[in-house]
Design a protein around this nucleic acid. Structure first.
Length: 253
DNA sequence: AGCCCACTTCAATTTACCTCA
DNA sequence: ATTGAGGTAAATTGAAGTGGG
């Protein structure tokens, strides 16, 4: 991260995230120990961090030995967290995002490391993108440019987001379809099982009694006049040959 | 050339589980 | 025995890279 930027107040701010939190160790390990951030973030009074790009504020207060945080968003909503962990994460996100932007704008990798920095879109940015996606799932170049300017991101990011979003939608639809087919399969299996059971019962009945004399009055099945069988399909004599009142017995044999 | 899609990579984040005070 | 904090590994998420149509 070669570019150390002074913020608009002329102060070279360094935010150390060294305090104890429930944020997971691994992610903090991977985050820079101290991050110098650009003009879009500034420390305000009352331990408040203000992201000028998203207009989000993160209030940080300490209460005895427990740190807590509350975010106030540009839409007026306020969120209170159990502890500082997720807010630290949020601050890291914002900082990371801005730093990535900065690196990208500076044709990146000024720090010499080729590590791919993951940029996370802010909630506000994601919400706006979602809103646009609801209206239409593809963008023409003009719309892309406009949205990119509005979100303060690169057009390529908007493009990638829409691509990934379409993929997610498709995947979800596939899952829904799969679930539907699974249900269909279950129903058919169940039906097949019932029919097979019925068949076994009829077979047993045939063995016990001469069928053409003993068939229950209620049954709609008939005996084939040519082969005198209820069971025994033409293709396989061992398999039952059943037909109902609307089929042609001679044609079936 | 530019766009889309499918597939992939990998950093960031979440979740689950464990240990210890 | 129970609870909460802290640590870690595995799983998941999602932004971005790549290659082919």
């Amino acid at each position: 991260m070669g570019s150390t930027c002074d913020n608009i107040y002329g102060t070279d701010l360094t935010l150390g995230l060294g305090f104890s939190s429930t944020a997971n160790q691994k992610s903090r390990k991977q985050a820079p120990a101290a991050i110098r951030f650009d003009l879009s973030l500034s420390l305000t009074s009352d331990h408040q961090i203000y992201d000028q790009k998203t207009e989000n504020k993160v209030n940080i207060s300490s209460n005895k030995d427990q740190l807590s945080a509350a975010s106030s968003y540009s839409n007026g909503s306020v969120k209170r967290e159990r502890d500082i962990g997720s807010e630290v994460t949020q601050v890291e996100r914002v900082i990371s995002s801005r730093v990535s932007d900065e690196l990208d704008d500076n044709d990146n990798d000024n720090d010499g490391s080729n590590a791919r920095k993951k940029l996370r879109l802010t909630k506000v940015q994601s919400a706006l993108l979602e809103e646009s996606f609801k209206q239409q799932s593809t963008l023409n170049p003009k719309q892309k440019q406009h949205l990119a300017r509005k979100l303060n991101v690169r057009p390529r990011q908007v493009e990638v987001w829409f691509q990934n979003r379409r993929a997610r939608t498709k995947l979800k639809q596939t899952e829904v379809d799969c679930e539907f087919l699974k249900k269909c399969c279950e129903t058919l299996t169940d039906e097949n099982r019932k029919l097979y059971k019925e068949l076994q019962e009829l077979k047993a009945l045939k063995v016990a009694q001469p069928l053409y004399m003993q068939l229950p009055a209620a049954t709609t099945l008939t005996v084939c006049p040519s082969c005198e069988r209820v069971a025994g399909a033409g293709q396989n004599s061992s398999k039952p040959h059943l037909y109902g009142p609307f089929t042609n017995p001679s044609a079936a044999c």
